[in-house]
């Protein structure tokens, strides 16, 4: 059922975006219900927004790159929403969210919306709110960026939220090598070697990445991840990155994998959410991941919160009877 908030989101009212994001972060039971309803509504509509994840080691220049991309996209008359995730303190639960410092280009522009989020209890990973936040922003903006710190598990998680994952490499920092060693080379769809103003060092990093990718080897999905040189500082190569993002999205649409990609993400989230609530034991009680997958595949019309609620009931029933 369409809500007033949902309607205001689709009308791109920034105050409504802020309100919706506050709602989806709210842990109070009544609010969670309202949030689920809102998300169900948004997912059913399936926003057309281009969703992009941006990841890379701290200091690689993710924020400055996004800042430059925002400028380019604004010049192309696209509106942009951004979720920036920073780690939380394990001791105090507090967090320092400093992304607005570097993402200045939308500071006074209502066509740009930035929400900083703390990773909360998820070590370097994404909170459930991040996922919901992307849905909210995707309903009101043309392009949505998700910025996460760190090379590791968060890539795999963020991949499920977006159409394209950009890996930002710092020239000469060796993080690209680490990245390849970690076996994550297949995850990103676009590689950007930022700070191309560093010259030879940037080009070397570029070749390393291309080498690691296996030159011109298209992946199983027929997409060859481009390795692009860019300089956020000098605004060079930025347009090519934007072009690559649209090209990748076009590729997904062409190959009919646009929806499948996000579905895969939803499935992964579903399993994680159920495990968080009931543990692996609970998920096993209804037949394990395969059963969840099967339910997901046969109930495509159901929204994510609906599926979650149905399976939760099943698990509770199963656990209650044993």
């Amino acid at each position: 059922m369409p809500t007033e908030l949902g309607a205001r989101l689709r009308a791109r009212d920034p105050a409504a975006v802020a309100q919706a994001l506050n709602l989806i972060e709210d842990a109070r039971p009544a609010k969670r219900e309202a949030a689920s309803a809102l998300l169900a509504e948004l997912e059913a509509r399936g926003g057309e927004a281009l969703r992009v994840g941006v990841t890379g080691a701290p200091g690689a220049g993710k924020s400055t790159l996004i800042d430059a991309l925002v400028r380019e996209l604004r010049a192309r008359k696209k509106t942009v929403g951004i979720v920036a995730v920073d780690p939380s303190s394990q001791k105090s639960g507090g967090a320092l969210l400093g992304d607005r410092l570097r993402l200045r280009s939308g500071a006074a522009d209502d066509g740009v919306f930035l929400r900083s989020m703390a990773a909360r209890d998820r070590l370097g990973g994404l909170s459930a709110a991040t996922r919901a936040g992307v849905e909210v922003l995707a309903s009101a903006f043309d392009v949505v960026f998700v910025e996460t710190v760190g090379v590791g598990q968060s890539e795999a998680e963020v991949m499920h939220l977006v159409h394209s994952l950009v890996f930002v490499a710092q020239p000469g920092a060796g993080d690209s090598i680490q990245f390849m060693k970690a076996g994550l080379i297949e995850v990103p769809d676009v590689f950007v070697v930022n700070k191309s103003d560093l010259g030879a060092m940037a080009e070397r990093t570029c070749s390393e990445l291309q080498g690691g990718l296996g030159l011109n080897d298209a992946g199983a999905d027929g997409w060859t991840p481009p390795v692009l040189l860019a300089s956020a500082r000098d605004a060079k190569g930025i347009d090519a990155v934007v072009d690559a993002l649209y090209a990748h999205r076009h590729h997904l649409a062409e190959t009919g994998t646009l929806r499948a990609r996000l579905d895969r993400g939803r499935l992964a989230w579903l399993v994680t959410a159920l495990r968080e609530r009931y543990g692996s034991y609970g998920v096993e009680a209804i037949g394990g991941v395969e059963a969840v997958e099967a339910h997901f595949a046969t109930n495509r019309a159901q929204t994510f919160p609906e599926i979650l609620s149905v399976l939760s009931n099943e698990i509770e029933a199963a656990l209650g009877t044993t």
């Binding site: 105090s92 967090a95 969210l97 400093g98 929400r115």
Partner: peptide, 27 residues
Amino acid sequence: RDVGMEVVYDGIRLTPAELVKSARDEG
């Protein structure tokens, strides 16, 4: 942060309009 708040640090040289937008966007 040390006492457990989530802190959006917005830095220097901000116009009042920018601060109002930050406050709204960040909730």
